[in-house]
Amino acid sequence: MSPRAGLDTHTLVLAAAEIADEQGIEEVTLAALAAKLGVRSPSLYNHINGLQGLRSLLAVHGLELLYAAMSAASVGLKGDAAVHAMGQAYIGFARQHPGLYETTLRAPEEGNPELKKASEQVLSLIIEVLSGYELGAEGELHAVRGWRSLLHGFAALENKGGFGMPLDTNVSLNRLISTFIAGIRSMSLRE
């Protein structure tokens, strides 16, 4: 069986995700992907629209995995427990998939309905959990930005080796999420 026999878009995305997680998103090139799959670079164009197309597919895949992790962690939970579970799942995803995680950070570009749908699915899940805090529609969006900023900052520092002190990072994460919850509890609908 030749290496091309099982070549499809899903296979390409999974292989590219492996490269991203093992070597970094910058190392995901068509040449690297072709080498990993044992094919010539031009044959990739039968399944993807160049490097930008591959990066968009990776972002959709990453957002789908992130959503699945956060959804599974928070199912059946409400309030503080759900926020903690989703936050821990978010960081768990960033730890397990550091390269793929990087693809999930940008706002979806216009003209990419799959990426927009995947992004909106993650956003809707977070808003659903935060709705119990009665922040109002605009307040929920501000809270989502704050939540993502805190968790991304934590993930970025951790992934780059920025936590050098001999303290359990999971304890730090738990305290960070608790601080966030205390903060959104103090927000009013007027803000």
Rank of each mutant, 00 (worst) to 15 (best):
F180I: 04
N112G: 01
S74Q: 03
A155C: 11
L37K: 03
E158N: 03
L63E: 01
S56W: 02
R55N: 07
E109F: 09
S149Q: 07
I177Q: 11
L44K: 06
R106H: 12
S74C: 02
G87L: 06
A31W: 10
A34E: 11
A94R: 08
H142M: 14
K116R: 15
E140M: 15
S119N: 15
E120P: 04
H61K: 04
A5R: 14
S124F: 02
G162I: 11
G24V: 00
G136V: 07
S178F: 03
G136Y: 09
P98Y: 06
N112C: 05
F93Q: 08
E191K: 14
A15Q: 00
A118F: 12
P108S: 10
A137W: 09
Q23C: 04
R55V: 13
V28Y: 07
V75S: 13
L125C: 03
G183A: 00
Q96M: 11
R145T: 09
G161L: 13
L54N: 05
S2C: 01
M165T: 11
G146D: 09
E140I: 05
L12G: 05
Q52Y: 06
D21W: 01
N159D: 10
R4G: 00
S186G: 07
G161M: 08
Y45F: 15
A85S: 10
G161E: 10
V171S: 06
A16T: 04
E102C: 02
R185Y: 04
E191D: 15
P42S: 04
K78D: 13
E191M: 13
V144Y: 10
V39P: 03
L30V: 05
G76H: 03
P3W: 03
Q52A: 08
E191F: 10
L33F: 08
Q52C: 00
N159S: 15
S186I: 09
L123P: 05
A20K: 01
D21P: 06
R185M: 02
F93S: 01
S186T: 11
K78Y: 07
A17Q: 07
L51W: 03
L115H: 10
E27D: 09
M1S: 15
S178K: 13
S119D: 15
A20M: 05
P3Q: 09
Y67N: 00
L65G: 13
I177Y: 12
V83F: 11
L141K: 15
L173S: 07
L157A: 14
M187P: 05
N49P: 00
G6V: 00
A155L: 09
G153R: 07
H142N: 12
E138L: 13
K116N: 05
G99K: 06
L58K: 11
N170I: 03
V60D: 08
R40C: 05
G146S: 14
L54Q: 09
G62R: 02
L100K: 06
N170K: 14
E110G: 11
S41K: 15
I48S: 01
R95T: 13
T104K: 00
L12E: 02
Y101E: 03
N170Q: 14
I19N: 00
N112R: 13
G50C: 06
I25F: 14
L66F: 09
P3I: 06
E138N: 12
P113R: 08
L33N: 08
I126Q: 10
A143N: 08
V83Y: 08
R4T: 09
L189T: 15
V39F: 11
L130C: 02
G99C: 04
L37R: 05
A73I: 12
N174Q: 15
H47F: 12
I25N: 01
R95I: 04
A89K: 10
A89R: 09
A35C: 03
G161D: 12
E26N: 06
